[in-house]
Every structure is written in C-alpha cells, then in structure tokens.
Design a protein around this nucleic acid. Structure first.
Length: 261
DNA sequence: CTTCTGACA
DNA sequence: TGTCAGGA
C-alpha cells in the first residue's frame, strides 16, 4: 500500500481547503510528492510538514507570494526578525480591538441610558471636560458635506465621537471633540440640565432648544454659560434616519429647598 | 465519488 | 477565497 495521501485527505488533515492547497502550488510554495496516473496530486509526510510551516508563516502575516523565498533562504536570524515584526503587528491589532471593544461598550451604555429615562429632562453631574476645537462656522450655516470635506485637519474617528456644538457669542458656532487637558476650551464641572432627543430634521432642533429653555425657566433653573449641543451620530445606528442629540447647559447651584415630598 | 483546470465574483 | 462548470 502507498503511504501518500490525496489532496482532500491533506486538506482535512490540515484543516484547510483543497482550493488553498492548489493555490499554494500555483504560487510555488507546496509541490505534491508526485502525480498519480490519473493526474491526482499525491502528498507524503514531507508535504505535511511543509504545509504546516506554510500555514504558520501565513498566521504570522507573511503573504503567500513571499513564503517561497522565506522557506528557501531565510536564516534563523531572519526568522527572529520576522517573529519580532509580527509580534509588533499583533500588538497593534490588539490595541485596535481593545479600542473597538471600548467603543462598543460605550455605545451600549449610552443607548441603555437613553432608553431608560422616562423624563426627558435630567440633571447630570459632569466633571470638567476638555474640548479640542475642530471647526468653526457661522450660526446661520448648517453643517454640510462640503464644509467637512474642506476642513484640513481631520479627526480620526469623528463620527464615533461626541461632537460638541457650542455657540460663542451669537454669530459663530464652534465644533469640538472631547480631549485630554488642557484642550482649547473646557467645560466646568457642575450640574448640567440635560435632554436627549432623536430628531428627523435638523430644523426640529430649534424647537427642542426652545422647549429646553422654557423647561429650565419653568423649573427655575438659572442657566450659566453657553448651550451645549452634543451630537452622537453613532447612536443613530439604533434609529433609522434620526439623529441623536443631547442638549446640556450648566445650571446655577440652586439653593432651593428640594427635600419636599 | 473524487479530482482537475479554469473562470468568476 | 469560495463556488461552479464540464471532463476524466
């Protein structure tokens, strides 16, 4: 009996597809031990070891194209460098995944937080927040694609961040993203009146803002500083065609007696 | 039933 | 990389 195996047996043994084995052959990295009379490829133990090496190199990120010269001419030292390099790549990937993981949990938390409140208005304690200026525009102007495209400095994951719209004075609105201290601008810690809304049209926002101020007045909250509009476009994932906004404004530490039931 | 080549998405 | 055709 012959000790060689067919391509499908090799594939099953090594947990790869038959196609992939032929592909390796096409690229000259894994030749069969011989061809049977019926043109079937036959593989022996040598090929098994060889394929194991190829698969290992693939896992290390070596493209199939370069595996040939790798296996034929690499010194132990060069393999050391290769291993070191892929270790660095893996660490980068790990970091990327951890950031993604953080983002996902953040979205989940914010989504839960948003859904859970029956009263649309809340008072939130906010620690000092540092903001990085990213774009300034006139109050009249609405944010459009052209404006974004023309902006030279791009924020890495702009639409995964909380974009703060703050009106300074009456004619300009500045867009900020959160950052580490010191930043270009900071929001003081304190109690903020907050409301979160989903809006269809950007124009609806004006009404929400009006309502916000009337509510504050009705509750005798004295608003300090500018209105802060936070856009979380990533939360719109849960609601087709609507944008998620949060309005916040610092309120004066009221001394009203709140312990009445 | 298995594999082969070649083409294609 | 998977899948399909058409032949051996």
């Amino acid at each position: 009996m012959k000790s060689e195996i067919t391509i499908s047996e090799l594939a099953k043994l090594m947990n790869v597809s038959v196609h992939q084995i032929r592909y390796f052959e096409e690229k000259g990295v894994l030749l069969p031990a011989y061809f049977d009379n019926n043109q079937y490829r036959m593989y022996s133990m040598d090929q098994v070891y060889q394929l194991a090496h190829i698969l290992l190199l693939r896992k290390l990120g070596v493209p199939v194209q370069s595996i040939k010269e790798c296996m034929t001419s690499y010194s132990a030292d060069q393999y050391g460098q290769l291993l070191n390099h892929s270790l660095r790549e893996i660490n980068k990937e790990l970091l990327r995944l951890q950031e993604l993981q953080q983002f996902i949990t953040k979205v989940l938390h914010e989504q839960m937080n948003f859904q859970s409140h029956t009263n649309p208005y809340q008072i939130k304690w906010r620690e000092t927040t540092y903001l990085a200026r990213w774009l300034e525009m006139s109050s009249q102007m609405t944010l459009n694609a052209k404006l974004l495209a023309e902006q030279a400095e791009s924020v890495p994951n702009l639409f995964e961040s909380d974009i703060h719209f703050i009106e300074h004075g009456s004619s300009t609105i500045t867009l900020y993203t959160e950052t580490e201290a010191p930043g270009d601008f900071s929001l003081p810690s304190g109690n903020y009146l907050s409301t979160q809304r989903l809006v269809h049209e950007e124009d609806d926002l004006d009404q929400v803002i009006e309502q916000f101020y009337s509510y504050a007045a009705a509750q005798s909250h004295v608003i300090q500083g500018p209105l802060i509009l936070i856009e979380r476009s990533y939360l719109s994932l849960f609601s087709q065609g609507q944008l998620h906004y949060e309005l916040q404004a610092l309120i004066e530490p009221t001394t009203h007696s709140e312990k009445g039931d």
